[in-house]
């Protein structure tokens, strides 16, 4: 019965299933899945890809067992501020980074295991009015935060013992930065999307703000998910939570836009719209390589091939719980889908 509830819908007569249900984990003490992620965790010389689940008051680490089962290893209890996001830290092990806050992020914390005193612990990385945060390679976190006077864009390097090793500031743009993405193919480049719908480019090594490029008025409040440089152009994958439906593009969830960083001119390359006949809109999602997944306001999860611009799978809501969050696994082609009742389903894409 459980498997029937989470069987992917096949679109437009597709014969093969693009999403294969693997396993389900359910935290009986958790009320609602706030976020889900995967993390490499090493214990007793064995390094495994584990699942991290977050509800408002706690974060749990789940270890894979035989026969597609999961064992809860540990639960970190958090304080009065609710957990609102898990922040993936690429290429790290035994580190979970989380954001806590109410409407906006108020704290960034690290959750870890300390072998020194054989205990699980947590440490504060940053507090303030934090607008956006992203985990970068080499154990770094970039965040934008605002005070009464100005905006601060800061990079913090963290160690696997939970200590902040180094802090560096980047030149802030005038407008608030709402999302960041590293630029694949240019090791020291970072982009961010801003509240006035611009893409900013920084040099991570020098902290310079190199360029601001306007995205256009048709797609307000665009959020960057991925960026890569190819043939002298900067390609940025954007989501459009507030885009209006149009006859030419349907209801766009994701868009790939090519920018010429030298001239700040841009052109749309590919649209990924909601499936035909599907009502509602994009709520939140994640991009990995050429794949995008998002939760829609209908309670479904949709998956797109960004290069083809087409929806490749659609997970309907369960009979008793809607989808709340979707994330790509850090390794392989796994998809983690969280339901409102706190359970998480693992799929292979």
């Amino acid at each position: 019965t459980e498997a029937e509830q989470v069987t992917p819908v096949l679109l437009d007569g597709l014969r093969e299933e693009n999403l294969q249900f693997i396993s389900k984990l359910k935290d009986s003490s958790s009320s609602c899945a706030v976020d889900v992620s995967s993390v490499w965790w090493e214990a007793a010389g064995c390094r495994e890809l584990c699942v991290v689940t977050a509800c408002e008051s706690s974060v749990s680490l789940w270890k894979p067992q035989a026969l597609d089962c999961w064992e809860k290893v540990y639960t970190w209890q958090l304080g009065e501020i609710p957990v609102i996001q898990i922040i993936p830290l690429p290429d790290t092990c035994n580190l979970v980074c989380i954001a806590l806050g109410n409407l906006e992020i108020e704290e960034i914390r690290l959750l870890l295991y300390s072998s020194e005193n054989d205990s699980f612990k947590q440490s504060l990385v940053k507090s303030g009015n934090i607008k956006a945060v992203l985990g970068l390679k080499d154990g770094r976190l970039v965040s934008s935060s605002t005070t009464m006077q100005e905006q601060q864009v800061e990079i913090v390097s963290v160690s696997e013992t939970g200590r902040c090793k180094d802090r560096q500031t980047l030149m802030p743009p005038e407008e608030t930065v709402l999302a960041f993405a590293e630029v694949e193919g240019v090791s020291d480049a970072l982009v961010g999307t801003t509240a006035v719908n611009s893409v900013a480019i920084w040099n991570l090594k020098t902290g310079q703000l190199l360029k601001k490029m306007h995205i256009g008025y048709s797609y307000p409040a665009s959020i960057c998910h991925r960026a890569y440089s190819d043939s002298g152009l900067l390609f940025v994958v954007l989501s459009h939570p507030h885009a209006k439906e149009s006859e030419s593009c349907g209801n766009p969830a994701f868009r790939v836009v090519a920018f010429n960083p030298k001239t700040a001119r841009s052109t749309g390359v590919m649209f990924s719209s909601l499936p035909p006949g599907h009502t509602g809109r994009y709520l939140e999602g994640e991009v990995k390589a050429a794949c995008a997944a998002a939760v829609l306001s209908s309670g479904c999860i949709a998956v797109w091939d960004l290069l083809l611009g087409c929806c490749t799978a659609l997970l309907p809501p369960g009979s008793d719980s809607r989808w709340a969050v979707v994330r790509w696994s850090a390794a392989g082609s796994g998809l983690l889908a969280g339901q409102e009742d706190g359970s998480v389903c693992v799929y292979r894409y």
Binding site: L209, K211, N260, K262, T263, T267
Partner: peptide, 23 residues
């Protein structure tokens, strides 16, 4: 897209912008 849509393209855009931008 063509060069004429986006203007002249440089493969070294990152290095060029870094040398032009204020420190």
């Amino acid at each position: 897209c063509s060069d004429s849509d986006l203007g002249p393209i440089s493969l070294d855009w990152f290095e060029e912008l870094s040398s032009e931008a204020p420190p």
